[in-house]
Structure formats: C-alpha cells, structure tokens
Computed example of a mutant assay.
Amino acid sequence: MNTLSYLNNEQQAFPPTDQALTEPNGLLAVGGDLKPQRLLNAYYNGIFPWFNDNDPILWWSPDPRAIIPVGQLKISRSLRKYLKKQDWHYSINRAFEHVIHACAMPRKAQEGTWITRDIQAAYTALHQQEKAHSIEVWNGNRLIGGLYGIAVGQVFCGESMFHIETNASKAAMVCLQQHLLNANFTLIDTQLVNPHLTSMGAQAVSRNQFMHQLVQLRDKAVASHCWKSKEVSVEL
C-alpha cells in the first residue's frame, strides 16, 4: 500500500521506497530535519529532499529514476569541438559554497528556487564533512559553471548544476565523468528525467532497478583521497 509517512526530529528511519506515492510521483515522507546524518541516511536509501521555501521538508524516491552509468555520458561532436576551443580550467571542491549559491539562483521563468538557504546550509555542512562535493568550471578567475552532489559508495548523486556561459554546465558534467572514471565510481544518479540530461545520456530505469544497483554499490570503495580539493585537467 502506498502511504505518506510523517517524520519528526527524533525519527531517523525512512519508510521503504516502494511505499512512495504514485501521485505526486515519488513523494515518500514529510517533515524531519536536514541534519547531516538524516541526509546521508536518505541518500544511502535512494531518497532525496525537494521542496519550496514555504513548504515542509518533502522526501522523494521517484519511479522511474534517471541515471547515467559512468562512462556512458554522451559528448556530442559539436560539444567536444566547442569545449576544445575554450580556454577554461576545472577544479574539484575549490568553491563548493559558490557553486551551490549559483545553483540556487532562479532560472528564467522560475519565481523561486528549491535550493533554499536551509538547503544551502545543510549541504555545506555535508561538504565540510567531506560528503558533498563540487565540480567547478572557470574562465580565468571567474566561476562560469559547476555542479554539486553527494557521494555514496560508488554512486554520485547529482543535485544541481549551473552555467553563466554557454555549455559550462555540460563541461562540468564532462569533468565529473572523467573524475568518476578515475576514482572507480560506477553510477551517476541524476534523479529526474529531463531533456537536458537525456541529451547527455541519462536513461530512465525503474525505482526497483535503481535500488538494486544502489544496494550493490553504496558500500563499495572508491579511490582514496579522490575528493581532495585540486585543479584537474579534462581530456576531450
């Protein structure tokens, strides 16, 4: 039976993901808090928060789920050609707070953002615990694109990306995949299917398929010190 659970600040356990509602798709629980341990518990179990500023905290596990197997990111010939012409450089975990703040800026035709101040504070706390990570794209000293997410074993759970120059968010995805390949990751969880991610290779799988992969990968090791703050090069 699909039911909606209500969490309090003491209750750390989430209900099984197969109890999520079908309408709205994937809504599993309401309430609780955004403390690091609860957030980590959520991602470990295939759940993520998503809510607007005036809403209670909403927890989701949609069906289907969008994923990109590491190594299967689609880099079009035109994108590869475009990026080769740019004098951009890349980094890991050099500017996490700047990236999440930029991701929180409203997009065109959007009145607000789900990346509230509470969300920014919560994920910054996870970053300080070396659990949340960012990829940055720079044009000189100017941050022009990036993304952030959570590492769970050999799964990288992408949260959001941004760009202020054409294709800079796609460049961040290219950098992310190269880094994940080098660090022995297996899967990128992109959560929801959308045209932008589909064009880059995201594929829809059932929640059961995703959960099976997550359970297989969430306790597996990756390369040590792979999230050390550093400049990185991207081969195209």
Rank of each mutant, 00 (worst) to 15 (best):
A223V: 11
S233M: 01
H133G: 01
Y82I: 02
I100E: 04
C103T: 13
G146P: 00
I75A: 09
L143G: 05
M1C: 05
E23T: 11
Y123D: 00
I67Y: 04
P16G: 04
Y82V: 01
M211E: 08
S5H: 12
E159V: 08
L143V: 06
S229R: 05
L180D: 03
Y82G: 00
A29V: 10
N45L: 03
N45S: 08
E111H: 15
N93V: 02
L214P: 01
S61M: 01
T3K: 00
K84F: 00
D219I: 00
F96V: 01
D189I: 01
Q203Y: 06
E165V: 05
Q178E: 15
M105A: 11
A29H: 03
K35G: 14
S134V: 07
N41A: 15
Y82P: 00
K131R: 12
R218N: 12
Q191V: 12
A121H: 13
A102H: 15
W114M: 08
K108T: 07
G201I: 05
A109P: 04
F14H: 08
I75P: 09
A13S: 14
S229L: 01
I75F: 01
Q72M: 08
C226K: 07
W138P: 02
L187G: 11
S224L: 14
L7G: 07
L187K: 07
L83I: 10
G153I: 12
L73K: 04
R77E: 10
Q19R: 13
L34W: 14
A125V: 00
I150Q: 03
N52D: 14
F162T: 14
F51W: 06
L28V: 13
A66R: 04
A95I: 12
E235D: 11
E235K: 06
D189L: 01
N41I: 08
H98P: 00
L217K: 04
A204K: 14
F185E: 02
M1W: 10
Q216E: 15
Q110I: 05
V193F: 05
Y6N: 00
S206Q: 10
W50Y: 10
